[in-house]
């Protein structure tokens, strides 16, 4: 099955975003536990080559990389130790959509 075309988020710090919840095969650097979760852009980094291409020896399309901040309540729901502790992760622009 073909992957959907890359839609790359262009967003500034503070913007609310959601991690896409698709499940493509292959080398992925978006942790499973964050898929579908909503957070806020903490800062913008990059561009960096797309690791999903680099992992196979292909040239990596340059992508913005975002540090996204999630609350523990958003990630773990009622199981969070403390709801407003946070988790920051680096997510490439094609894995994010506006929320």
């Amino acid at each position: 099955m073909a992957r959907p075309p890359l839609q790359v988020l262009d967003a500034a710090p503070g913007a609310p975003v959601r991690v896409r919840s698709f499940q493509p095969p292959g080398h992925i650097r978006t942790p499973h536990y964050l898929r579908g979760k909503c957070g806020v852009i903490e800062r913008r980094l990059g561009p960096f080559g797309n690791p999903e291409q680099l992992a196979y020896g292909l040239p990596g399309d340059p992508l913005p990389l975002y540090r996204v901040r999630f609350t523990m309540a958003e990630v773990w729901g009622g199981k969070a130790e403390r709801p407003d502790d946070t988790l920051d992760a680096e997510i490439y622009g094609h894995w994010l959509e506006p929320a």
């Binding site: 650097r29 978006t30 942790p31 980094l45 990059g46 960096f48 690791p51 990389l65 540090r67 901040r69 403390r82 407003d84 502790d85 946070t86 988790l87 920051d88 992760a89 680096e90 997510i91 490439y92």
Partner: peptide, 15 residues
């Protein structure tokens, strides 16, 4: 203490 906010940073990519 409970008054401290914990920020966990998951180094998932290039940084």
């Amino acid at each position: 203490p409970d008054t401290t906010t914990i920020r966990v940073h998951d180094s998932t990519a290039d940084m």
